[in-house]
Design a binder for these strands. Structure first.
Lengths: 245, 245
DNA sequence: CTCTTAATAGTCACTACGACTATAAAGAGG
DNA sequence: CCTCTTTATAGTCGTAGTGACTATTAAGAG
């Protein structure tokens, strides 16, 4: 492919081809612990290390399409309706892959509790591992994962993404556990309940349904995700006092 | 460059090389009107249309480096300390450029009022134009620009980015005009003042300095940007009531 | 001087929120 | 069956934050 020189807009320089990939930070909450979908590398570099799932863009794919395809291949279950998938940012440092120049578009995906992935015919099997558990990840994936965690934590405040971690019908206790797990904070239950119910469109009750939370305690009412995507008023994290930056 | 087949992590498929560019949504507030830095296309496709400035990544550049270089080339003044520059998202739809496959990493840049750009030796001269004025932009740049506007509007609520639109020393009236311009809403002046001053680290007073706002009225006190990057409490947009989504 | 303009000070009612206490409804263990 | 534990849900109270105001101050214009 010949280098081009074009003027006006973004086409001023001769261009260099790059490899473009997607990387996926797939998160779920299992028993109050944040888990990440990871694959073990079978090749150099970083052989034996854990890495985020991902892969190259096919010639006619957008990054979003490629991310959804990779997610389906990796978990074998993402095809149905598709989980919450959102572009995080793009990582393009030269040297982030020692072999060659790779520009990677990272995504976050949020799934309800942990269906164990069945490898979709690929050699490398994906597994759920607790966030932060498996030492340093390959490439710059620690950075990507930390950015994903930050982003999701921030979005819980003003977006209704927490329901993406929950099954179609869920209790307010389960929803609260999502917040507590991602934020790593304990929340007051009556206050959490009051705020969630006061936020229009966040959740809507399932009439007459209740679930036993595992046996013990009073059965909880069930709710479905509402139609709102932004929360008004926002559900702010507790006590950032004294943390100016 | 040979196609590769690697397993584990994001290296499962043979890869296709792509052209990678950066696009810049450079915003400023001039006389209460949001302005965008645009260049006129001198070639097909979209000849004569306005487009966002941008260009190809050089072989050893990250997207951030390329964005800063393009901004400096385009305005001729971004080299000093560098303006607020932030990655927006990556646009990768096949067909977004009719000539070939181009993946573009978009950035937003915020500048204080409008130093008229001096073209840095390039043929296409960049110009400030009012947001929304110059009809449809080339490629998918309308979408990118709208996304940038949305993002900046949202960030004004909980980040201290508004000061990036202001000169090093500014009045609260100027800061308020940034909010009013980006949000396209009128704000109550005493209430705005109260909230800004109550938010720790947002602004700090310049002792004993005052500026005449152009002649008329009581002279306003001057402030500098504070050290905080996030606003506590946030400065929420007025009245989203009745707008559930 | 007076009028206009803009900055700044202050008031008041209402909402939202953190920290509580209280009650209800289930299972567990005797 | 009764009590203890567990979890969900209801409600209270003081305080902080906010929208809608009114009032005052300090400048230039005429």
């Amino acid at each position: 492919m010949p280098a081009q020189d074009r003027t006006g807009g973004y086409d001023r320089h001769a261009y260099e081809p790059f490899a473009v990939t997607v990387d996926l930070a797939v998160l779920t909450v299992r028993d109050g612990v944040l888990h990440v979908l990871l694959v073990e590398r079978g090749q150099e570099p970083h052989i034996g290390r854990w890495a985020l799932p991902g892969g190259f863009l096919l010639p006619h794919e957008s990054a979003e399409t490629a991310a959804r395809r990779e997610l389906a291949e990796e978990t074998g279950l993402a095809d149905v309706a598709g989980p919450h998938l959102e572009q995080l940012r793009t990582y393009s440092d030269p040297g982030r892959d020692p072999r060659m120049r790779v520009v990677s578009v990272a995504f976050t995906a949020l799934l309800p509790d942990a269906p164990e992935p069945r490898g979709g015919g690929d050699a490398a099997q994906a597994r759920w591992l607790p966030y932060g558990a498996p030492g340093p990840l390959a490439f710059d994936h620690d950075r990507i994962l930390a950015d994903a965690h930050d982003r999701v934590g921030a979005q819980l405040e003003y977006r209704s993404v927490a329901t993406a971690f929950c099954p179609p019908e869920f209790t307010l206790g389960e929803l609260q556990q999502v917040y507590e797990t991602v934020w790593d904070t304990a929340l007051d239950r009556p206050n959490f309940r009051r705020k969630v119910l006061a936020t229009h469109g966040f959740v809507e009750p399932v009439p007459g349904a209740a679930r036993l939370t595992g046996g013990r305690g009073k059965p909880a009412a069930l709710y479905r995700a509402g139609t709102a995507t932004t929360l008004h008023p926002p559900l702010l994290r507790p006590s950032r006092e004294g943390r100016p930056a």
